[in-house]
Design a protein around this nucleic acid. Sequence first.
DNA 1: GATGAATGAGTGTTCATTCAT
DNA 2: TATGAATGAACACTCATTCAT
Lengths: 210, 210, 210, 210
Amino acid sequence: MSPTTRRDTILAVSARLFAEKGFGNTTTSEIAREAAVAEGTLYHHFANKDDIFLTLFNETMDGFLAGATAAAVTGSGRERLSAYIRFHFDYFAKNQGRILILQRDFPPHLANPGGVGKPAFILDKLSRITELLSLILDAGKKDGTLAFRYASRDAAELLRGMLIGCTRQKVLGTITTPIPKLATMVESFCMDALAAGQAGASSDRHGGER
Amino acid sequence: MSPTTRRDTILAVSARLFAEKGFGNTTTSEIAREAAVAEGTLYHHFANKDDIFLTLFNETMDGFLAGATAAAVTGSGRERLSAYIRFHFDYFAKNQGRILILQRDFPPHLANPGGVGKPAFILDKLSRITELLSLILDAGKKDGTLAFRYASRDAAELLRGMLIGCTRQKVLGTITTPIPKLATMVESFCMDALAAGQAGASSDRHGGER
Amino acid sequence: MSPTTRRDTILAVSARLFAEKGFGNTTTSEIAREAAVAEGTLYHHFANKDDIFLTLFNETMDGFLAGATAAAVTGSGRERLSAYIRFHFDYFAKNQGRILILQRDFPPHLANPGGVGKPAFILDKLSRITELLSLILDAGKKDGTLAFRYASRDAAELLRGMLIGCTRQKVLGTITTPIPKLATMVESFCMDALAAGQAGASSDRHGGER
Amino acid sequence: MSPTTRRDTILAVSARLFAEKGFGNTTTSEIAREAAVAEGTLYHHFANKDDIFLTLFNETMDGFLAGATAAAVTGSGRERLSAYIRFHFDYFAKNQGRILILQRDFPPHLANPGGVGKPAFILDKLSRITELLSLILDAGKKDGTLAFRYASRDAAELLRGMLIGCTRQKVLGTITTPIPKLATMVESFCMDALAAGQAGASSDRHGGER
DNA sequence: GATGAATGAGTGTTCATTCAT
DNA sequence: TATGAATGAACACTCATTCAT
C-alpha cells in the first residue's frame, strides 16, 4: 500500500510537489531528485510530464467515483444525497494532496488542448459525477424525500459545481471553517434547499423571474 | 474609458490572452505584439508580468465589490441576498474574460508565494466579499427573512465558496446550463436553503450527525 | 562583406562548424559560444537550428545558380558547358566550407521530412540546375557542338549527378587529385563524352543493350 | 544465410532502419524492438551502435569489391569497364537499402573522427575500388580499347567519384531516370568519353585551358 | 516614454550504454 | 547469452527581463 515501486514513488512525489507548487512550477528534475531516481527514469514510467499529471487525475477521479457510488447506494434519495456529500468531504480530507492538483490548477493546456474544448477523458469523469448525482436526485424525487424544480440533470450539475467549488475554496485556504464543520454546514444547506415541500414556495416567490 | 492609452490596451489584451490560454501560457512578447507596443514598453507600465495580472485582479475585484455593495444595499435581507446573487452572475456574464483569469488559473506562485499562505491583497479582497455577505445574512436574520444555523461569517464563507465554485465550473465549461438559467437556479437554491422556518426542521433531521 | 552583423557571424560560424563536424554533431550552444553571442540570440535571427542550415543552403544554392547562369550565358553550347563545369569547380573551391554542408550530410530529416519525399525548396533548387544544364545541352545540340543520345533533361540530370558526385568525393577527402587538375579532367571527360560525331558510334556499340 | 541468427536479424533490421531514417535518427531501442530482442542484447553482438554501422559498411563494401572484381575479370579493357559499370548499378539496385546508408549519411563522426581525416578502414575499401578501376583502365590503354589522358589512377578516382555520385543522386531521389536506363546512359557516357581516338582530339580542343 | 535586440538560466525530453538478475 | 529497467549527460529551445539607443 505504501509507495514501494519506483512508479508509485514518482506518482506520490509528483502529487505532493504539484500540490505544493503547482504543475507548471514543478520541474521534472525536481520530481526525479525527490523520488531519488534519475530524470530519465521518469520517462520509462510515463510518456511525459503531462502523463504523470493525467495518471494522477484518473486515479484520483476513479477512486472518488468508486467511493461515491458505493457510499450512495442505499436508502432514500435524501439519505443517499447526504451520504454522497459526506463522502465528498471525506475523500477530500483523506486525499488533500491529490485533490489539490485538480482543484487548484488543472493545467490549462490539458484542460483545453488547442482551445477546442475539454478532452474526452475529463468530460467523461465529470459527466459520471453528474450522472450519479442525477440518479440520486431522481430517486429522492420519486420517493418524495427531495424536492426541486428544473431537470435533475441541471440540478445535478449545479450541486456538483457548488460542492467542488466549496472544496476548492477550502483547498485554496480562503475558507477558514474546518473540514468537518464545513461538511456538516454544506450538507444541511443542501438538505434545506432540497427539502420536500420547499420547492413550491420558492417557486412562488421567484416564479416570475426571467 | 475605452482602452485608448497604452496601459489600458496592454491590460485589455492581457485579459483576453490570459483568458484564452492561461497566464503561464501567455508570453510577454505575445502581449506586446497584440497590443502593438514594443516588449520593453510593458515594463514602463508594469513592474513585471505578475504585476499585469495583479492589476487585472485588483481592478476586477474592486469592480465586483463596488457593484455588489451597491446592488445589495436596499430592501430586506432576503431581497439583498437575491440581488447579490443576481449581480454575481451578471458581473460574471459581463466580464467573462477577466473572471476567467481569476477563476481558472490564478498563478500558484502568486496565490501562495513561498508556500506560506495567501498574500494580503488576496485575502483582503476575499474577506471584503465575506464581510458583505455577512452583513446581508445578519440583516436577513434580524428582519426574519433569512434563516440559518451557524455563525453568519461561516455561512457567508460557504455561500461565497458555492457561488464562486459554480461560476468557475461554468467558466471551465463543465456546466452546460446557460448563465441566466443557472443564475435563477442558484438563486432559488440558496433562497430555499435559507428560507425562514426551514433551518429548524433541517436541524431536526440532521442535528445528530457528526 | 566580412561578417559584421551578428546574423552573419552566426551563419559563418555555423557553416564552419557544420562543415567540420556535421550538422547533427554541432550544438546550438557551440555555435553561440563561437559566435560570441548568447544562445537565445540564435533564436532571434533564426527560427531554429534547421533554419540556420536551410538559410545556408538557400544562400549557397542561390549563389551557385546565379553564378552558373551568368557563366554559361554566351558562346556555343560546348563553350557554355565548359564554362559551367569550370564555374562548378570554381564555386566549390571558393566555398568549400559551405559546400561541405550540402555535400556531406544534408540532414536526413530535412531532406525527407516525414519520409514522403523532398521538400519543395530542395527540389526547386535542384531542378533549376537541371534546367540550366538542359538549356546548355539543347543549345549545343542545335549548334552542333554537342552530341548525345537521350533527352537533354535526362542527360542534364546525369551530368549534374556526376559533377556533384565528383565534388562530393573531393569534399570527403577520398579523391587526392587537386581541384584545378580535377576540374580540367572532368571538363575534358565530359567534353569527350559529348563530342559531336561521337554519339552515333557509341550508340552502335551499345545500342542493343537492355 | 537468411537472417536467422540474432546477429543477422539485428544487421538486417539496422540496415533497413538506417536506410529509412538515417543513422542518427535511428535509436537502438527501435532496432531492438524491430529485431525482437532486448536492447541489451545488441551489446552482446556489437560493441556499440557505431559498430553495427561499421559492420554493415564493411560487409557491403566487401560484397561490392568481390562482385566487381569478378565481373571485370575478362575481356578487353573496354569490356571490363562496361562490365564494371553495369555491376555497379546492378549491385546498387539489389542492395538499395544498404547502399543508402553509405551514400546518404555516412555518420560524420565515423568518417572523420577527430577531424583528422578518414579512418583507415574506409580509405582501404575505397582505395581498393580505385585500384580495380586503375587496373581496368590500364588494361584498356594497353589493348587500345580505352583512351584517356592523365594517370590511370587519377582517371580511376574521377570515374569512381562520378559513378558513386550518380548513384547517390539516384538514392537521394533527385534523379528521376529509372535505374536500368540510368545505367545504360552512364555506361555509354563513359564509353564515349574514353573512346579510343577521342582523347587526342579533345586534348586539342581544350589543351590550352588552365 | 518607447524601443527591440540581446540575454542566459532553465525547461522537458532523448537515448546510447550499463549491469544486476 | 539474454534481459530491460535504470541511468544522466546532453540537447534544442523558451521567455521574462534588461538596457543602450
